[in-house]
């Protein structure tokens, strides 16, 4: 186990190092991104530029610049944005993370619940009209892009019907959980729904396939021969085994979303999360922030991977000794 954990940790470090180098190189290989020009502001004279370059160490060789940036980011934790002078990267991320986490955790609970219900229901009602109907709903969910759905939801709840049905919907934005839990939930309700529609559709389809396969397995026949109730066979045997691949997929999706992949939903609903932060930084070509968010995202994806492996071993005894 220790050997396993150590190997895992080392590979995670390696991945993060590689990503950071890649981001760094891509950034400086992109034309027209001279950070000095951005820091010095518009129409700065060459002398100022040179001064800025020197002050930020931008005239040093690339490896040194990389190490300097990493030192500021990870050791001194005082790396500053190139665009908004004085704005430090780490506090920005620390501030944005809870927003994204709130959004993704809520949506994940929703989509897992709905996905499992839909998938299981469709699988058990195979051969009836309910099955294709549920699956159709799932496909519709999958094919609605989040930004479009979000805009439509906003249009309806903020404009068209805001005066009547949806008068209780607060304007886009975010309220911290510790400040006011009720408002927090209210602000996040539609973002949750929007984000979970896509994933619920995907997970329902996947789970249906898994449960249908499981229901044809020999062990389900054994369970029937034991005289168990259909409900118990479905939940304790078929569904339990079907969840194994679903859960590992969930870990990866969850990690990616927390890392910033919920970007579109955040932007549409004006949530100041990691995705939004990355989005803005990319628009301004603000290397320090990009570097910070990308490393943060990589960290979560790697962490999610490790958690999935551990969870997998918990769920599937066959994986424990392999």
């Amino acid at each position: 186990m220790l050997y396993f954990a150590a190997r895992r940790f080392l590979s995670a470090l390696l991945v993060m190092f590689a990503i950071s180098v890649l981001v760094f190189l891509i950034f400086f290989a992109t034309p027209g991104v001279d950070p000095a020009a951005r820091i010095a502001g518009r129409n700065a004279d060459p002398a100022t530029l040179a001064q800025v370059r020197h002050a930020f160490g931008l005239d040093r060789p690339m490896p040194v610049r990389y190490l300097l940036m990493m030192k500021h980011l990870l050791v001194d934790r005082d790396l500053e944005s190139f665009v908004n002078r004085g704005a430090r990267v780490i506090p920005q991320i620390v501030q944005a993370a809870p927003v994204t986490l709130s959004l993704v955790v809520g949506a994940a609970i929703l989509w897992m619940a709905v996905g499992i219900l839909m998938g299981t229901a469709a699988a058990t009602m195979r051969g009836t009209a309910v099955d294709p109907l549920i699956m159709l709903v799932g496909v519709v969910g999958v094919s609605l892009p989040a930004y479009w759905l979000g805009e439509v939801v906003n249009l309806i709840t903020q404009k068209q019907l805001h005066g009547t049905v949806f008068s209780w919907v607060p304007p886009p934005g975010y309220v911290g959980l510790s400040q006011n839990p009720g408002e927090w939930a209210l602000h996040l309700l539609f973002p949750w729904l929007t984000l979970s529609v896509l994933y619920a559709g995907i997970y329902a389809r996947l789970l249906r396939g898994e449960v249908v396969t499981a229901l044809n397995e020999d062990y389900v026949r054994t369970a029937r021969a034991k005289g168990l109730s259909e409900r118990r066979i479905l939940v304790r045997h078929a569904l339990r085994c079907s969840l194994i691949p679903i859960v590992s997929l969930f870990g990866l999706d969850f990690g990616a979303l927390v890392g910033g992949a919920a970007l579109l939903t955040e932007v549409v609903f004006g949530l100041p999360g990691i995705g939004k932060l990355t989005f803005d930084a990319l628009q301004n070509l603000d290397l320090p922030v990009i570097m910070g968010t990308v490393l943060y995202a990589a960290f979560f994806v790697v962490l999610a991977n490790a958690l999935v492996d551990i969870l997998y071993a918990r769920l599937d005894p066959r994986a424990r000794h392999a």
Partner: peptide, 23 residues
């Protein structure tokens, strides 16, 4: 019928490798 299955009539199948729930 469920009360009979497993209690009064039991059944054993061909492939023991897949007959038990793996988890």
């Amino acid at each position: 019928m469920r009360a009979i299955r497993g209690r009064e009539i039991a059944m054993v199948f061909q492939d023991p490798m897949t007959a038990l729930t793996p988890v």
